[in-house]
Structures are given as C-alpha cells and as structure tokens.
Simulated assay, not measured.
Amino acid sequence: MTDAAVVSVLRAVWGATLLAVPGRLLRLEGQPRTSGNARAVLRILGLRHLGQAAVTVGSPRPRVLALGSATDGLHALTGVAFGAVAPRWRRVALLDTAIATGFAVAGALGARMSQRS
C-alpha cells in the first residue's frame, strides 16, 4: 500500500467518524450541549474528507495530492480563524486545525515524493 493510500484510508476513517458520530466527538471535546448546526457542520466536513479520499485513491497523481494538500491547508486556516472568533468552539476548532494540518503536510509530502518517482 502506498503512502498516499494509507493517508486516504486514514482520511476516510476520519470522515466516516465525523459523519457517523459528530455529537459524540463534540462531547469528547468538551461541548456538553451540541446543536444540530454543529453536528451538521461536522457531517459536512466528514463528507468532504470522504470525497477527498475517494478522489485521491482514484487518482494519486502529484497534482491531485498537491490540490488536496492546498484544500487541507485552507481548511486548517479556517479552523484557526473560527477558533479566534468563537471562544466556545476554540478547542474543537484547534483540534480540527491540527488534523487538517496533518493531512496537508502528508499530502504535500506525498505530492513531492510521487513527483520524484
């Protein structure tokens, strides 16, 4: 299994988790009362991750990996911004930022490595 495939599997698992149990994740992150809107946002993010995993598995070319990395980078930046303006959600936003940053770095490294081979 290639590195890009491993990252795609991890991304798919994370996306499926966001989709399946968003309320539980929010409670684990210190949000005892979660709104339907918060759960809906996590489900949308889960769908994004599942879609990106499917695209990457279907076409693990350097350009696809680089575009995915850029998408994850933007995702991380929005998490930082949201955490800055919404103190109640800061902890969740920063966790999401950390995960998106990890995927961005993995995608960038994967793109770079696949260009060399």
Results as ranks from 00 to 15, higher is better:
Gly36Trp: 14
Leu77Ile: 10
Ala76Val: 02
Val13Ser: 07
Leu67Val: 10
Leu95Thr: 08
Ala81Trp: 13
Trp89His: 13
Gly51Lys: 08
Trp89Asp: 10
Leu45Cys: 02
Val92Phe: 02
Ser8Trp: 01
Glu29Lys: 02
Gly110Arg: 09
Ala100Gly: 01
Leu28His: 07
Thr34Ala: 08
Val57Ile: 12
Pro22Trp: 08
Thr2Asp: 15
Met1Gln: 04
Pro62Val: 09
Phe103Gly: 02
His49Val: 00
Asp96Thr: 02
His75Gln: 11
Asp3His: 09
Arg116Glu: 15
Gln115Pro: 00
Val55Ile: 12
Pro32Trp: 06
Pro32Lys: 06
Val6Cys: 11
Val41Tyr: 04
Arg39Asn: 13
Val7Asn: 09
Val13Cys: 10
Pro62Gly: 07
Trp89Ser: 11
Arg27Tyr: 05
Ala93Gln: 10
Arg88His: 13
Asp96Met: 03
Phe103Met: 09
Val41Ser: 01
Gly51Cys: 09
Gly15Ile: 05
Asp72Leu: 05
Ala100Pro: 04
Gly110Asp: 06
Gly107Val: 00
Gly46Pro: 01
Val13Gln: 06
Val9Asp: 13
Gly83Thr: 04
Ala100Thr: 09
Ala70Thr: 13
Pro60Ser: 14
Gly73Gln: 07
Gln31Pro: 02
Leu94His: 13
Thr101Leu: 14
Arg43Ser: 05
Val92Thr: 15
Ala4Glu: 12
Ile99Pro: 04
Asp96Cys: 08
Gly15Asp: 07
Leu50Gln: 05
Ala86Phe: 04
Asp3Arg: 08
Gln115His: 12
Arg39Ile: 00
Leu47Ala: 13
Gly102Cys: 09
Gly23Asp: 14
Ala106Asn: 03
Ala5Trp: 03
Leu25Ser: 12
Gly68Pro: 09
Ser59Asp: 15
Pro60Phe: 06
Ala100Met: 00
Ala104Tyr: 09
Leu109Asp: 07
Val21Arg: 14
Ser35Arg: 08
Ala81Phe: 13
